[in-house]
Design a protein around this nucleic acid. Structure first.
Lengths: 313, 313
DNA sequence: AAGTCATTTTGTCTAGGACAAAAAAAGGTT
DNA sequence: AACCTTTTTTTGTCCTAGACAAAATGACTT
């Protein structure tokens, strides 16, 4: 696997790529002696790619609850050991049908075999149906691709290829469903900083199979705009998707902020694996850590809000 | 319209809500005397909501190309005047059928009428066919939406809604075409910094109707990854889409860089309105300023490269 | 019109110091 | 051993004020 010959990155580039703020990067350098970037002609930091890579690794470990003190100073081997510690969930011994599908996808991806990949995804979708395609295939597949990528065994372009193809299939699947008229009326988007479209599409698919045709605003809509749009459109539920790209703390702040802006009658459903380890609860926000839970949540909502037919906007 | 009783915001909250960086907020305060937040017990900035509101307004005006020097110091009335200033471009006199379609779309968008919008786009696609849908409808529509947005007459969420719906239609249209096997084999993506997906999809659609099923990598693929992928996959042409979001100079630099990395036999097609005013030529790069030119370019390529059937990967 | 050069404007970077919020450790009670 | 309270350590964010390059503007020339 060839090594990228990317140029050294500025501090703002590193902030973008790792999610660690400029202040944090500078204070780590002062306290722990890492990262220790070289400087350009004007004394500004330039981070070599290997340091950026290590920072990305550290950032991932932080999300798992480890603390900087033991990570930032440590040599790379220690980090990798920790990474595989909890991370490497051993592959199931029994080669289930599901597992094989994942492996096939990964193999086609590694070979850049776009035509076969498209066909494989399309056939899988037809065989499983949209709901099972999303829950049993797309969700674990995303995890696997992310994992493989972070191990450096998949290039950026391969990851892009995957996202693109999966997106295509999901949209095909969603588009094929005849619009339902059942409530609640849901508006779907992500908050600023969250760029991942796949999570959004997967949620949209799961809603679609429940007869809910939701309004999707795509990614990165500011809280103010979400609240304005939700009011004007007479929305019942604002659905937000979170990947692990966002830090939990930042995400919680934005959520609280949005909650304050929206009238009480509008619910917020916050989805994504990011919330799996969350203890604190937020009044008026429902956390959905797995897509499987969505049907139950919808059923509960419908039970609480008697009217069987929702306003169609 | 109820007024939010939100508490005064910290500097990081303001950064999130306005998109203006902490550094910018501090330096404006130093230079222009605005914003001038109160301080809490520890000397940290607390921005009252009216200042945040004004900042949001300023931020929007900046996106239209106005400059901070005249905005940040100015009183609220001046800002509001500027906001409505350019606002009213007189509507075209002649009402063509095409023009009406654009207006209808805009009207549905303004009303957040998602269901009607979806239906309108779908019907237009069926009526025009994919190629004319892209060239005669989607392209001018994009321009119009961008224009209307920059006049402040469309919110971010409405613009997102448009992008999302249009994307959906285009993908439906592309997916409905049976895969062709004619050359050249094209890989499609954008360079880092270019986030716009619609241009990419429009190009993909135009290629699809010529019997070319291309490999799309989605947006923001680094030059190194593009070149690696193109080689491994045995691609004939790398297609790149550029909106006006990127600076021409930066774009040219990245293009030159990519040209150097790719073997000569692989062509680069650079598409987008960004190149309309370009004088300089780049050897080995073909600039396509309008999608209408694409069929001709393809025909030329096929004529030059005799073999009528391309390698299908 | 279009290119070149000087000038102003504007955003981002730098340096350490400071401090609160969060987490961990220590101590005390049932 | 389990649980609450207090102290200590860790850690991220905020502060000031100076510096400077990239971008935009204006002046001048071809």
């Amino acid at each position: 696997m060839p090594i990228h010959q990317l140029p050294d990155a500025s501090i703002s580039a590193v902030e973008r790529e790792t999610g660690l703020s400029k202040d944090t990067l500078r204070v780590w350098e002062r306290r722990y002696g890492f990262p220790l970037p070289r400087r350009d002609a004007h004394g500004e930091r330039l981070y070599p790619q290997d340091q950026v890579h290590k920072l990305r690794l550290i950032s991932r470990l932080l999300d798992r609850g480890l603390r900087p003190g033991q990570l930032v100073g440590a040599p790379l081997e220690t980090l990798l050991a920790r990474a595989s510690d909890e991370g490497g969930m051993p592959p199931q011994g029994a080669r289930s049908e599901d597992g094989e599908r994942l492996d096939t996808t990964l193999r086609l991806l590694a070979a850049y075999d776009e035509a076969a990949l498209r066909s494989h995804l399309s056939l899988t979708l037809q065989r499983l149906g949209l709901q099972r395609f999303v829950i049993d295939f797309a969700a674990p597949m995303n995890l696997k691709v992310g994992e493989t990528w972070s191990l450096g065994q998949l290039s950026i372009s391969q990851e892009h290829l995957y996202t693109e193809q999966m997106q295509h299939q999901l949209r095909q699947g969603i588009g094929a469903i005849y619009p339902g008229v059942r409530g609640p009326s849901v508006m779907l988007t992500t908050l600023p900083g969250e760029e991942h479209q796949l999570g959004l599409l997967m949620a949209q698919a799961c809603l679609a199979v429940e007869g809910i045709r939701c309004v999707s605003l795509g990614v990165q809509t500011p809280a103010w705009d979400i609240s304005e749009a939700a009011r004007q459109k007479g929305i019942d539920v604002v659905g937000l998707s979170f990947s692990e790209a966002l830090r939990q703390k930042a995400a919680l702040e934005m959520l609280t902020d949005l909650r304050d802006r929206l009238p009480e009658r509008i619910e917020i459903w916050a989805g994504g694996a990011l919330w799996a380890r969350l203890r604190r609860r937020l009044p008026g926000v429902r956390f959905i850590t797995r897509l499987e839970q969505l049907p139950r949540v919808i059923a509960e909502y419908r039970a609480e809000h008697q009217s069987p037919i929702a306003n169609a906007g």
